[in-house]
Amino acid sequence: MAEMTYRQALHDTLREELQRDENVFLIGEEIGRFEGSYKITAGLLQEFGPKRVVDTPICENGFVGLAIGAAMLGLRPIVEIMTINFIALAMDEIVNHAAKIYYMFGGQCPVPLVIRTPGGGGQQLSATHSQNLEVWFAHVPGLKVVAPSTPADARGLLRTAVRDDNPVLFLENLALYNTRGEVPEGDYTIPIGKAQVMKEGHDLTIISYSRMAVVALDVARRLEQERQLSIEVVDVRSLRPLDHETVVNSVKKTNRAIIFEEDWRSYGVGAELAATLQEEAFDYLDAPIQRVAGAEVPLPYSKPLEQAALPSARQLVEAVDRLAIRKRRVVYA
């Protein structure tokens, strides 16, 4: 175990994967000479050279498509989209091509591709630079979407993603880069499609991912101390495929669920999880599933407005209150 930042965990993993497999290369805007807009790739150009660390012009559709084409011929590109907001420019290549090629051509040609990109608001970057667009991709069969919340998960999931034969959207979050956490030693991987119970509890389940999972864990610990509430926190980690089993089992145990996400509420991860829970755990629900999500506005610049638009710990606590948990429950075996 070593403590490191989320950023360091990503950096180290990229470096290891570049060392491990000659077919792995990095490609994206400003990842080489500029060392990455968020410095995830700092030093890698120097170490691996321009063949393995490829700076691109500003043309998301072009270089994402290029990466897909390279993957079709067996390379394992790791694309960096500077922020997820710019991924809109590459939608055609990701959705119409990366996600389709294996299926549409009858299983002849896999596309082993990773697209790393940070999302999230809270940095006063305003409407076009603060979005959470991962559900666009989680919606599409043929793509995988992971969204780790801790340095350890970032490392384990990035390794898995690079070694996966499918296009994987690897969602980071600007506010997570400087967070720290214990990271296991060694070449460990975390399976895609496996949620993690970050904290066990029996009164309520909070389901979340990425940065909000960290907030949820904090709130859960606080409420346990202050109110003796036993809250289970599940970090789904993968949005596609989604680990129904872990989520459903948790809610079967606690009978109450809050889904906590930074993204807009409509048609989001919360909607998907709520639908899944009512389908698979209906008879275990003791209260309506709550969604705590971002305000449905383009994120404003001004600090008070931005803070009002982003989901917060306070809103999460309010949702816990709405569930009206009155007593500590006895768990029947």
């Binding site: 063949k51 290029l66 084409g69 390279a70 079709m72 011929l73 390379l75």
Partner: peptide, 16 residues
């Protein structure tokens, strides 16, 4: 237009 970036990528792989 979808196939163009892919073709460029395939050429990239060949050059690689």
């Amino acid at each position: 237009g979808g196939q163009l970036p892919l073709a460029v990528g395939a050429a990239f792989a060949l050059a690689y």
